[in-house]
Write a protein that binds this DNA or RNA. Sequence first.
DNA 1: CTTTCATACTAAATCGATTTAGTAATTATA
DNA 2: TATAATTACTAAATCGATTTAGTATGAAAG
Lengths: 345, 345
Amino acid sequence: MKKVTMADVAKLANVSKSTVSQYLNKRYEYMSEETRKRIARAIEELGYQPNIIARSLKQKTTMTIGVIVFNILHMLTTQVLHAIEEACQERGFHVIVSNSDDDPEKERKYIEMLRAKQVDGLIIFPTGKNADVYQKMVEERFPLVFIDRMVPGVKADAILLDNQKAAALAVEYFAERGYKRIGVVAPPPVSHIIPRMERIEGFRQALAKKGLPIVDDYFITTEIPYIQNELARLFASGRLPEALFAINDLTLMEVLYFIKGNHIKIPDELAIISIDDVPFAHVYTPTLTTIAQPTFAMGKKAAERLFLQIAKKSEHQPQIFRFSPTFIERGSAKEKNVIRKREVT
Amino acid sequence: MKKVTMADVAKLANVSKSTVSQYLNKRYEYMSEETRKRIARAIEELGYQPNIIARSLKQKTTMTIGVIVFNILHMLTTQVLHAIEEACQERGFHVIVSNSDDDPEKERKYIEMLRAKQVDGLIIFPTGKNADVYQKMVEERFPLVFIDRMVPGVKADAILLDNQKAAALAVEYFAERGYKRIGVVAPPPVSHIIPRMERIEGFRQALAKKGLPIVDDYFITTEIPYIQNELARLFASGRLPEALFAINDLTLMEVLYFIKGNHIKIPDELAIISIDDVPFAHVYTPTLTTIAQPTFAMGKKAAERLFLQIAKKSEHQPQIFRFSPTFIERGSAKEKNVIRKREVT
DNA sequence: CTTTCATACTAAATCGATTTAGTAATTATA
DNA sequence: TATAATTACTAAATCGATTTAGTATGAAAG
């Protein structure tokens, strides 16, 4: 039951290994019809399957890319991964996915391991905390694409949402419909997580631009497990906002859970818009108005950029791509009634 | 910028490659403190990173497994994948995921490619149509685990839900609450997709056991895109069932979409129970009563079984594992009112 | 004082492909 | 007719590790 190698095929077909190799690589130029057939028959007979590891060692290319994500539970991750998968399968590439759990230590380790495994390139949803490691890859011209988040100072391709615009879209929609007291729900803004900053800051700026009040209490920026508490505290204070902007799917889930537990009526008592078009948005009651990221296009772009870098390692000009969000109007934010059913304060 | 190899390290440290290799594999037994330090320094100085491809060629193990799924959009897939990932990361394994799209041709190709890539084992959500290929792997004692679906006649490990029980759980719950006219929504039952058969047949048997009518019209078994139509036709006929059993998350989405579009009230006009505990089940209105698959345990088990096979290729006894579903009682099926709001004949 | 043993290494073979440089035979060109 | 070119191959080096069999040295044992 030992493995069949090229040498076995060569022996059976009565040719050299070199010729078999030529055959496998379809370099038929100077090969007789007769030889070709003999080799084909030998391969068939032995059930020979080439060993790609051996080939990779010589060729220094593995036709494999690595993807490091910081959170698989995120909807964006799943969908982008799907798109990357698809783009890779079209070109015969394979994908190895690793989960950094937003832990820079783990991320660093996975980068090392994947590079040791000789992946041809890396697409990273970065934790943002390994600037030195990222920088080294850029300097070595190792193919690298950031997605979802980017790292200031590291000159690499980055595929991002236009987060400011996404926040503005939400605020403008609320504003136009007469909502004034608007809050935001997000994990804590930290300087190395750019999109979070951009969404929260974009929200603040859009509020200012529309001349709407910026109320500190309406900025629920705390870790996911504490969002319920914060929301409850705000609710108990009696100064509930009229509308809430959830900056991603995970925070939206918290908001919905809170609303459910407190029998708050959407959109009459509280309007909601979130980034990430969750799959149940159109079957929820009310249907959810969301701001969709073009996840598929983003994943595809990331893969394309990586392939570009792999193809011509040298003269590659890193670029930052900002993808426009799409506003999907549904039912969780409507024309605001002047007289509310449950007036607070 | 050429790669640093073990030979470079050996030269700088003034030892042989063998010694460096021993060092890297922590076989310090007969190595002087002095040498160890020199090697460590040389590695540090050169920024040496071992090439795992070369190592794999010699060792005939890649510390990589392949997973072939038939549908990434399925919730089960995502969650099981997550569990497999985690189990692999614990043991230093990497995972390559490929999507067969339920196309046997694709599946066959991916099996070939992954084996050419020398993966140490394969976890497959099988299309069910490549029995010959699966069988060959079993005969060669190539580590293989089926998950979600199994293939009759192929003696390999299989991780499955107890589908009959899942169906029975739903029917019994409905029956005990006074529901009589119960329907099922599923893709078409085909002989090579075992769980689908088991769920539909299990449903039929449970109905019989409870002495409930088996109405052909209440078996909506058609491809996902046509479910809306079938549901509409049934609805138009005026003979709506009182309860519906959705056999997975994808069919549930169709049911919910239909319900939404037709302003049907859950659970008063139509009760619903589905297999797969969708992430929004607890925030939906009403909350959704579901039958959860222990996805995490299943993924973990699949990985463990594969590792077992990898560890001792020979004396491995293939087994079929049936995981028990968990009934999660929420609000989409309640005590049935004797007088219905909208009585249909 | 030889032999054995333990220690601290190394040379060379090996894994299974690809690739380069070359050979032998035949055909075309000067 | 001698030389060049083309065709159809092959031997051997190579990729970068691991591993086996072995060597050299000094200490312990007989």
